[in-house]
């Protein structure tokens, strides 16, 4: 692809960079496309595992412009090369800590320190596991959060999916390609998922749904063997033999490194006014603050807003 560097990089790789973007999902990468095209030197600390939640999906059917759908990982590759095409520097490393009391800001990643005139927090959210005993111990031994990765290990087997949102529907659909039977366990009596996703699941003969049901325990030593369930409608309990359990009950914001540095709400999401945080020069975009929409396209939209707000901020005399 032709390179069109609008943004020059600082001579010293440590910076100061006009903007350091922490995170590399749709929010972070879209922000980088806007900041680089606005000629701001841009460093993306993309994380040891880069690309965000879409890297663990198969076909994404609701991202505008892809009328036939697009593979999540391919979409992320394209966003990344688009940002790099305009001069973004991409490092697949985790930001370990930040110092917001210094100007420019300091960010430590491994044994390196980077300086930033502004920061965009775009660390997104990560899988929430069930609290039930046995679940964490059996991760990789039948318990998973990535059906596209692990579904083939459950060929001809019986698996359960826990959750009621779009990602639970997606996991269940993917699993039907391999498993003999897929049981969706949901604690309410209706799904939060979009009508299209629900339809796909409900008309699939391999999928059964257990409403008003919670997993209270995962059983198995060497591998998952069964789940203890509780029906919240009549308080009855039961045991369901399964070989796999796919957890899709939602996500928690990845904000550990910002605790005590940036204002967070009681659930750990970054508090925001538009794209601004409580620290001047620190901006936020995507699932790390948004718990209402949580879509690839809204994350990208928030990323665009944060990118544009960073460019205005860099114009202000105090940011120089």
């Amino acid at each position: 692809m032709e390179q069109e560097f609008f943004a020059t990089k600082p001579e010293d790789p440590r910076g100061p960079w006009d903007v350091v973007i922490i995170g590399s999902g749709p929010a972070g990468l879209t922000a980088a496309i806007y900041t680089t095209r606005g000629a701001a030197s841009t460093l993306i600390l993309g994380g040891g595992t880069w690309g965000g939640q879409l890297m663990l999906t198969t076909v994404v059917d609701n991202f505008p412009g892809f009328s036939e759908g697009v593979e999540g990982p391919i979409l992320m590759e394209k966003m990344k090369s688009q940002a790099q095409r305009f001069g973004a520097e991409f490092l697949s490393v985790n930001a370990d800590s930040i110092d917001v009391t210094k100007s420019p800001f300091e960010i430590k990643a491994g044994d390196k320190t980077y300086l930033a005139r502004s920061i965009i927090i775009a660390t997104g959210a990560r899988t929430l596991w069930l609290d039930a005993p046995g679940v964490k111990e059996l991760i990789g031994k039948g318990v998973s959060s990535c059906a596209p990765c692990d579904a083939p290990f459950f060929r001809g087997k019986k698996v359960a999916v826990v959750g009621g949102g779009d990602s639970a529907m997606e996991e269940a659909s993917v699993l039907t390609k391999y498993a003999s039977e897929v049981i969706i366990i949901h604690r309410r009596n209706e799904f939060k998922a979009s009508a299209a996703m629900q339809e796909k699941v409900k008309k699939n003969p391999k999928i059964k749904i257990l409403w008003n049901t919670e997993v209270v325990k995962a059983n198995g030593e060497v591998k998952l063997e069964s789940l203890d369930l509780k029906n919240s409608a009549d308080n009855s309990t039961s045991n369901l033999p399964v070989d796999g359990l796919f957890v899709a009950i939602g996500h928690a914001p990845a904000t550990e490194i910002f605790k005590g540095k940036v204002e967070l709400d009681e659930r750990g999401f970054v508090k925001n006014k538009g794209t601004k945080t409580n620290i001047s020069g620190m901006f936020v975009s995507g699932d790390v603050h948004d718990h209402a929409y949580e879509q690839a396209v809204t994350a990208a939209g928030f990323g665009c807003m944060a990118g544009m707000d960073v460019l205005s901020f860099l114009e202000e005399p105090q940011s120089k």
């Binding site: 985790n94 991760i139 591998k223």
Partner: peptide
């Protein structure tokens, strides 16, 4: 007992001495 990939297992003297499930960096 691999039911999730990537899984990486470290073997020493023919025995498993450690295992990492998933890619965490």
């Amino acid at each position: 007992g691999i039911m999730s990939i990537p899984t990486t297992i470290l073997f020493k003297d023919g025995k498993e001495i450690g295992r990492q499930v998933g890619f965490s960096g």
